[in-house]
Amino acid sequence: MTFKVFFLVLVAEACSAGMHILFKRGVNTLEPGSMRSIKGYLRFVRSVLKNPSVWAGLLVVCCGMVVWLLVLAHAELSLAFPLDSIQYVFILLASAALLGERVNRYRILGTFFIIAGIVLVALQ
């Protein structure tokens, strides 16, 4: 993997993390979506589509996807896999710092077990 591809992957991962944070920020202001009734779910869908933070997330991920397309044309999909684990750290830090989620010891421990697991699975 060349430096250029590595950098592109990092940018794509950062866009993806940004998308999750903006989505979460947006839906935090809404009632939780329930799939138990069609009417209730459509109401949820409508409020999601009217949410500016969700749209900002979609915009960020569109930029990220263009970058991804460039990566995919270069690298094997499997090479990009281990770099995916960077996301877990991005998301954990951002959830605590930007979303005010209560990240306790178990959650940190769990996230690190998962990162270790993904690296082991990718080692093959």
Partner: peptide, 14 residues
């Protein structure tokens, strides 16, 4: 977004 409306991002993502 349905998932995110129900649980923390730091739970859903990992």
């Amino acid at each position: 977004v349905t998932v995110l409306s129900r649980v923390d991002l730091s739970v859903a993502f990992p």
